[in-house]
Computed example of a mutant assay.
Amino acid sequence: MKQHMLPVLCLTSILIIPGCSSGQDTEDAQTKNETRNTVQKESTSEDETFPVEINDASEDSVTIEEEPERIISIIPSNTEIAFALGLEEEIAGVSDHADYPKEAAEKEKIGGLQFNVEKIISLEPDLVLAHASSLQQSKEGLQQIEEAGIDVLVVNEAASFEETYESINMIARATGAKAEAKEIISSMKDDVEHLREQASQIPEEKKKTVWMEIQPPPDLYTTGSGTFQHSMLKLIHAENAAGSEKGWIPYTTEDAVKQNPQVIITTYGQSVDGNPAAQIKNRDGWSNVPAVENGEIYHVNSNLVSRPGPRLAEGAEELAELIYPDVFAE
């Protein structure tokens, strides 16, 4: 049951790139997340039972009367979190793009960004896990679901580890899985701290500049600050070639070459034909780029470095081992 608290003052359009979240890095967003964290911490205790009241990312207060027995997740990141929390049996439906864990692919599909409202209602869920990143285009559909008497929880859009912990905690509170969330977050924090300790061994003069290639030409995109990739590079003491800019940034191939990166990381290998490294090596004007000269062109799974969830620490570790194998490789 939702009780409206604050009006949504404005809705901003965001650029959607396959496999990525928006990653806007604004002080206002951080302040709002910190405020929401404070509210949730004050209202949460180890022995909390249902009903629970949660301030979600739509600026609404969601009251969940009983522990959900049937849950639908309409975005892959929420699905990953729900499975990690041990909610496989409760998951009644997922989006068409849910691909992890493998068991998610076997669940009933409810559509992609344009989810099927009638299908969702027919599955008789107690709770629908929505997401702030798609709130603008899904607002009408979510309203129809609420009018059918189904609780809708809009999970925050995360662009950092801390915001991901918030997402995990929010879903856990709504589903009665707080103990599992505590264990997951503790493990992630341990992994992040271990990477930070290892990275401290890297002297400043050995710091590498990295070009993160999110999408290849003709519509070349990279990632700036306010994104998971940027925070991961910073964590492992690497320099983001586009770190002075924010969000997802279009580049010309000429301007990309000027960044003169020592390492190139691509995140789209599973969605294009051919070998990204070979394609980069064959680009006009790229032969003298240090990363190309030294053969330091690597691919990582986009979901590991852009999808908010328990595998983010694994993504940061993979980046670390590729960029600084002498420091991080086992």
Score class of each variant (00 low, 15 high):
2 K>Q: 10
6 L>K: 15
9 L>V: 08
9 L>I: 12
10 C>N: 07
10 C>Y: 15
11 L>Y: 13
18 P>G: 00
19 G>M: 06
21 S>T: 12
22 S>K: 11
24 Q>T: 10
30 Q>S: 06
30 Q>Y: 09
31 T>D: 13
35 T>D: 07
38 T>I: 10
41 K>L: 09
41 K>G: 01
43 S>V: 02
46 E>T: 15
47 D>R: 06
48 E>D: 02
51 P>N: 07
52 V>N: 01
53 E>Q: 09
56 D>H: 03
60 D>M: 07
66 E>S: 09
70 R>K: 14
73 S>G: 03
74 I>E: 07
74 I>P: 00
80 E>N: 12
80 E>Y: 09
80 E>A: 12
82 A>D: 00
83 F>E: 11
86 G>E: 14
87 L>N: 02
88 E>I: 02
89 E>W: 10
92 A>S: 06
92 A>H: 03
96 D>Q: 03
97 H>W: 14
99 D>Q: 05
99 D>R: 15
109 K>E: 02
112 G>P: 11
113 L>C: 04
116 N>M: 09
116 N>L: 14
118 E>V: 04
120 I>Y: 01
122 S>R: 07
122 S>M: 05
124 E>M: 06
126 D>W: 03
127 L>P: 08
128 V>D: 01
129 L>R: 08
131 H>D: 08
131 H>G: 05
134 S>F: 12
138 S>E: 09
142 L>G: 07
145 I>G: 03
145 I>W: 10
146 E>R: 14
149 G>M: 09
150 I>E: 05
151 D>F: 11
151 D>P: 06
152 V>P: 13
159 A>G: 11
160 S>C: 05
174 A>W: 04
179 A>T: 08
179 A>G: 04
183 E>V: 12
186 S>H: 07
187 S>H: 09
188 M>G: 02
191 D>C: 00
192 V>E: 04
195 L>M: 13
199 A>V: 02
203 P>I: 05
205 E>H: 03
207 K>Q: 14
211 W>G: 01
215 Q>I: 09
215 Q>F: 09
215 Q>Y: 10
217 P>W: 07
221 Y>W: 11
221 Y>H: 10
223 T>S: 15
224 G>R: 10
230 H>R: 06
233 L>I: 02
235 L>K: 08
236 I>P: 05
239 E>R: 05
243 G>T: 03
244 S>W: 08
246 K>E: 06
254 E>M: 05
254 E>I: 09
259 Q>M: 14
260 N>T: 01
261 P>H: 03
261 P>S: 01
266 T>K: 04
269 G>D: 12
269 G>C: 04
273 D>K: 14
281 K>E: 11
283 R>D: 08
287 S>P: 02
291 A>F: 12
293 E>M: 06
295 G>N: 02
297 I>K: 10
297 I>T: 05
299 H>E: 13
299 H>T: 08
306 S>F: 02
307 R>N: 06
308 P>C: 05
309 G>D: 01
317 E>L: 15
321 E>P: 00
325 P>E: 02
325 P>I: 01
328 F>K: 07
329 A>K: 15
